[in-house]
Design a protein around this nucleic acid. Structure first.
Length: 542
RNA sequence: GCCCACGUAGCUCAGCAGGAUAGAGCAACGGUUUCCUAAACCGUAGGUCACAGGUUCGAAUCCUGUCGUGGGUACCA
């Protein structure tokens, strides 16, 4: 619908030059008697033209060349809105387009030949992924899907660090449990990793090596084993949610290939770093931030900032047009330093979009569960997927905007399976599959010759909704907002269920039945494509 | 103290690219099944859009302040 409006307004721009001075936008009004699409541009022009908005609106309308078979009515309403009413015939055209394009309907080539990188999850291999990571994982993968749908070639990337203090503590935790299992009395520090999985890893080492590791001088072997086992589990958890990373980027490689030293040297040459208290500081105050920060500790070890900056330079060097970082809100203080560093090095940080999602609050039996990997006080993502299923997990994490704090009531999620919105969508899809099966058994099939018979408000509302899918995908992708797709699908499913109740196919006169079959097929395609973007399955039977 | 996000129906949340009478799901109450899956549909009820100012033709939406919630504020990441 908007495409057509843009077309006729572009033509009108030649006649009315002031149309070049205003944003030409259209939106579907809340009230259906205000038309199918509406624009407020006449009101936006009042100041410039010093004229009554209704007069401006009327002048604009006079200069539009409107095809009566597309738009049946144009009206000026309220303070100066211009409302457009589309013909049933035009609305019905979308049906054939959808059925022709099928699983590609909704895709766009707007960002064709553009490459995007999205970094998400990026949990260090110190323990299983928790429900908290789940939100990050699901949103990240869905944003990646959306980007692919609007034309990007996308790399999903997981950044991790298998060196450093955390990992040493992990290795020592396993080592201590290993010795404990062999009967030695040990003291297990409170701030070491308390989880059961540490003992399991230790047990695996005993099974394989017996007591031969008893006199290991340090934690290295234990750390390596723990890293491998935990990473295998993380990969398997992600796989259970249909998430597949293209790249696992090891922070350590930045040291090996000299990137860290190179960046450090550059800052020094640019006079952006200095030594104080035996540490190296980055002059962030000189490049727009509040405080100078340490990039190399007095121990000689870099802080996260330096490798993070080095890491991001590789994202630029690898030629991405769009670089997305997806973090939980606990990281919101870290990225400004990294961005400032990159800017100082001459990188165009406009290409980087930092997405911050709010935390998930876990409620179990009405109690808030404070999550801590180290204290082993958490619910794993595996447990969650097992309890409620992949589809519910993906849908649940996708249905809210990133900025909203998310309450995840475990009890509710477990028993909610009957009243969960994801089933509402899947049921719409399954219902359509069921109808199509029955109609084909009766030798009925879709036909596009009599679509004008689809003229009840219910049918027209459904067709209008289907029209919006393409722009919904585009907008959601450009703004990294997966939840919009979930909302859109709920609206679409509701309109379909109403159609199902009111507009029967079997037992209806054949021409109308065939037109309705075509509409049902188109609806099924849209629901399926939307669910595919969200990573939720679209079953034919439930 | 300072920084970021959030505050909308009993609950969970949309709406926030300024627009016309603020929406959905769940929960509550009432109705619909000789008829393509009732995992559905229809209806009733439910609101000081945290509060106070400001910007303008118009503010849930933008700005400022206050209060509240979460996160951060390291030579942890």
């Amino acid at each position: 619908m908007k495409e057509y409006l843009y077309k006729i307004f572009n033509e009108a721009q030649n006649k009315l030059s002031y149309l070049n001075d205003v944003d030409i936008t259209f939106s579907p009004p809340n009230q259906s008697d205000h038309g199918d699409q509406s624009t407020n541009m006449a009101m936006l022009l009042t100041k410039k033209l010093k004229k009554n908005p209704r007069e401006i609106a009327s002048e604009i309308i006079e200069n539009l060349s409107i095809d009566k078979s597309v738009i049946t009515k144009v009206e000026i309403a309220g303070p100066g809105f211009i409302n457009f009413f589309f013909s049933a015939e035009y609305l019905a055209n979308i049906i054939q387009k959808i059925n022709d394009q099928n699983e590609n309907f909704g895709r766009s080539d707007k960002y064709k030949n553009k490459k995007a990188n999205i970094e998400f999850v990026s949990a260090n291999p110190t323990g299983p992924l928790t429900v908290g990571h789940g939100r990050n994982a699901v949103i990240g993968d869905t944003v990646a899907n959306l980007l692919e749908w609007i034309g990007y070639e996308v790399d999903r990337e997981y950044y991790f660090n298998n060196a450093g203090r955390q990992m040493r503590v992990l290795g020592e935790s396993v080592q201590l449990r290993y010795l404990e299992l062999l009967g030695e009395s040990i003291e297990f520090p409170e701030d070491y990793y308390q989880g059961e999985y540490i003992k399991e890893i230790a047990q695996h080492l005993i099974n394989e090596y017996g007591e031969s590791l008893k006199d290991e001088p340090d934690e290295t072997k234990f750390k390596e084993r723990a890293e491998k086992e935990i990473f295998d589990e993380i990969r398997s958890t992600l796989r259970s949610l249909n998430i597949e990373m293209q790249t696992f980027y090891n922070e350590h490689s930045l040291y090996e290939d000299g990137k860290i030293d190179m960046i450090l040297k550059k800052f020094e040459e640019m006079g952006l770093s200095y030594k104080k208290d035996n540490a190296v500081w980055l002059k962030l105050t000189e490049i727009g931030n509040e405080q100078d920060k340490v990039i190399v500790k007095s121990t000689g070890e870099p802080t996260y900032r330096l490798p993070d900056i080095a890491y991001h330079t590789t994202k630029f060097d690898r030629g991405f047009d769009l670089i997305i970082d997806l973090f939980g809100s606990d990281h919101n203080a870290t990225y400004p330093d990294v961005m400032a560093g990159l800017r100082a090095l001459g990188y165009d940080t406009e290409k980087v979009k930092v997405l911050i999602h709010q935390f998930v609050t876990i409620l179990d039996k009405g109690e808030v569960v404070k999550m801590s990997t180290r204290k082993a006080n958490y619910i794993t993502l595996d447990e969650l997927v097992e309890a409620v299923g992949k589809d519910v997990v993906r849908y649940f994490f996708n249905m809210r905007s990133l900025t909203s704090h998310l309450n995840f009531d475990i009890d509710l999620a477990k028993k909610q399976s009957e009243e969960n919105p994801v089933f509402y969508l899947q049921y719409a899809h399954a219902r359509i599959a069921s109808i199509l099966k029955m109609t084909s058994e009766q030798n009925l099939s879709e036909s596009y010759g009599d679509l004008e018979l689809l003229n009840t408000p219910t049918e027209m509302n459904l067709m209008k909704k289907l029209h919006q899918f393409e722009e919904e995908v585009l907008y959601s992708g450009e703004n990294y907002e997966p939840h919009r797709i979930a909302n859109y699908l709920e609206d679409t499913a509701a309109l379909f269920h109403k159609f199902y109740t009111e507009c029967r196919i079997l037992g209806t006169e054949e021409k109308l039945a065939s037109a309705r079959i075509a509409l049902a097929m188109a609806t099924q395609t849209v629901i399926k494509n939307g669910l595919t973007i969200l990573g939720v399955s679209a079953p034919d039977r439930m």
